[in-house]
Each structure stands twice: as structure tokens, then as C-alpha cells.
Amino acid sequence: MANYREISQGYAKGAITAALAINGGAAIAVLSQFKDLATLINTKTIACVLLIYSFGVVFAAVTWLLGFLSARHADRTQRGQDETYEISDKYMTLGFVAVALSLMCFIAGAIVLVANV
């Protein structure tokens, strides 16, 4: 029988890993091509793009923290220390928002970069 908690945790780990990888990778790619990009676009635009990708990394890292807190409160509820899963659900929702913001940072950074080349 499928353990849906483990399955959802696996998807959450994958989403956090992907959000970290695409934003971190994009920042590294921009930095590695800085010299060539600086001849095509304003360096302030490049700095803005790097800042956007950095926020994406931060949102992804915050997602991990929110996931941990969600799981912690779910455990407390299972042990009878909390009455409902309400707190856990709030952290889970915030985690979803944080990973979505991280992915939007990647898209925003790419759009800013492409729009200014």
C-alpha cells in the first residue's frame, strides 16, 4: 500500500531541490558569462538578475525550513500535543508559496535578462 506521506515528502524534496538548482545554476551561469554579457547589457541589469536569482535561492531554502516546521507540527498532532493539523497545514501552505515564489524568481530573472539583451 502506498505511503502518501512519504510520497508527498519526496515530491516536496524534489521541488525544493529543483528550485535551489535552477536559481543557483542560473546565477552561476550569469556570473560565468559576466564579461560577455557586460558587452551586451548594462551591468546594473546583470546585478538585478543576480539579485532575483539570489532571492530564488533564499525562497527555496526557506521552503525547507517551512517543510521541517510543518512535519514537526504534524508529529506533535499525532502524539496528541496539538489538537489539529491546522498549524502544520499553515506551514505547508507557506512552503508551497515559498517554492512558487522561488520558481517565479527564476522566470523573472530569465525575462529580465532576455528582455535586455
Rank of each mutant, 00 (worst) to 15 (best):
17 T>L: 15
3 N>D: 06
55 F>E: 05
63 T>L: 00
22 I>M: 07
96 F>I: 15
72 R>I: 00
36 D>E: 15
91 Y>Q: 04
102 S>M: 10
81 Q>C: 02
24 G>R: 05
4 Y>W: 15
112 V>M: 07
71 A>S: 15
85 Y>K: 12
48 C>D: 11
56 G>S: 08
38 A>Y: 12
109 G>K: 06
94 L>E: 00
39 T>R: 12
99 V>Q: 08
53 Y>W: 08
109 G>A: 12
20 L>I: 10
89 D>C: 04
93 T>W: 07
63 T>Q: 08
110 A>L: 15
79 R>N: 01
98 A>S: 13
22 I>L: 09
104 M>Y: 08
87 I>A: 08
85 Y>N: 14
64 W>V: 05
70 S>C: 07
92 M>N: 06
100 A>M: 15
67 G>E: 01
104 M>P: 02
71 A>Y: 10
27 A>T: 07
77 T>H: 01
34 F>Y: 15
63 T>D: 11
65 L>K: 06
38 A>M: 13
93 T>I: 13
55 F>R: 03
95 G>Y: 02
117 V>G: 01
53 Y>A: 11
94 L>M: 06
103 L>G: 14
30 V>P: 06
10 G>Y: 08
6 E>A: 09
94 L>T: 08
82 D>K: 04
84 T>K: 11
109 G>D: 05
113 L>M: 14
31 L>P: 06
55 F>N: 06
100 A>H: 03
62 V>H: 01
54 S>I: 12
47 A>I: 13
11 Y>A: 12
12 A>F: 05
8 S>Q: 09
